[in-house]
């Protein structure tokens, strides 16, 4: 561990490399976190299966490629497929838990998370899988800093999707209805908004967003059946650090988390990277709670 730190100090270029590559994956976290914040804000449900939708997006893209299509085509296909999976989940399960207590919605989505992860494991096996887009990579500074082209594309696409959703929520009729429902579902219902429909759209949209993210993950990085939970935790962390509905905050938190994770992976060893993510989340929670405590409040 100290050796790695020493290497880091002696080769500042490496810091740049880790930083940039970390921030690139941070864009994916932003997208997943946006999906979680949407469902959280509108329906007051923490969707524990959020990360599994990212994972499923990756596997759908894998299937698309196996069918002989171009990987980039996997992005819209994964998004559309996940929209329907989200729709199905909402209509079969989630709508039954929307207005019930936290306990039920948490455990139900936790069950969905186990179900999807284990199902994928049965269908595709537990191996780590990836797609080679054959786009090559750029290198800078005597090839100390290397950037895979697909990661850069993924970065900008992720930000573009996030921006598109933001515009949709601000400008479109449906987007306004979603925002109204998130502020006060009962009032929205009285004013004639079909909240059931709004919830369906919100949940499906959130799944579609994660599907697109997962498609980018499988091309730029890799997937296996159990990457879901870490993505859920990362999204949760980004949302609680930034706060619901704080877009600049989400972007900074997502990119920062990506970079921090990459550094931790290098310094502690990649086998501790997941442990680092989860520990960081616990520390963030405790730290937030302490700060609230001073104001006679707590995380609720």
């Amino acid at each position: 561990m100290l050796d790695n730190l020493a290497i880091l100090f002696n080769t500042p270029v490496l810091i740049v490399d880790l930083m940039i590559n970390g921030m690139l994956i941070g864009a994916i976290f932003i997208l997943a976190a946006y999906g979680m914040a949407l469902v959280w804000g509108v329906m007051n449900i923490i969707n524990v299966s959020q990360g599994e939708y990212v994972m499923l997006g990756g596997y759908i893209t894998l299937v698309v490629v196996k069918l002989g299509l171009h990987p980039l085509l996997g992005i819209p296909i994964a998004a559309i497929a996940l929209y329907f999976i989200g729709w199905l989940m909402y209509r079969s399960i989630i709508y039954r838990v929307v207005d019930r207590d936290v306990f039920i919605s948490l455990l139900a989505t936790f069950g969905i998370s186990i179900f999807l992860a284990q199902l994928t494991n049965q269908l595709f096996g537990a191996d780590v899988q990836t797609i080679d887009t054959k786009l090559g990579s750029w290198s800078f500074m005597n090839s100390m800093v290397s950037l895979a082209v697909i990661k850069v594309i993924a970065f900008f696409l992720a930000l573009a999707f996030g921006f598109a959703l933001w515009v949709f929520l601000k400008k479109s009729r449906t987007g306004q209805a979603i925002r109204a429902t998130s502020q006060n579902a009962r009032a929205a219902r009285i004013l004639g908004i079909d909240t059931h429909r709004i919830y369906t759209i919100t949940y499906s949209l959130s799944a579609a967003l994660c599907g697109a993210a997962g498609s980018l993950v499988v091309m730029a990085w890799a997937v296996h059946p159990y990457i879901g939970l870490p993505y859920t935790i990362r999204s949760f962390m980004v949302v609680i650090v930034a706060g619901l509905g704080n877009l600049p905050g989400v972007i900074v938190a997502g990119l920062g988390l990506g970079a921090a994770e990459n550094f931790a992976g290098f310094i502690l060893g990649t086998e501790f990277q997941i442990a680092f993510v989860f520990l960081l989340m616990i520390f963030v929670l405790i730290w937030r709670n302490r700060r609230l405590r001073r104001r006679r409040k707590y995380l609720k």
Binding site: V48, F278, N289, K300
Partner: peptide
């Protein structure tokens, strides 16, 4: 000190 969602996700982590 945390409640609800936060406690559940914290313990999951």
């Amino acid at each position: 000190g945390m409640r609800g969602h936060y406690f559940a996700i914290g313990t999951l982590g």
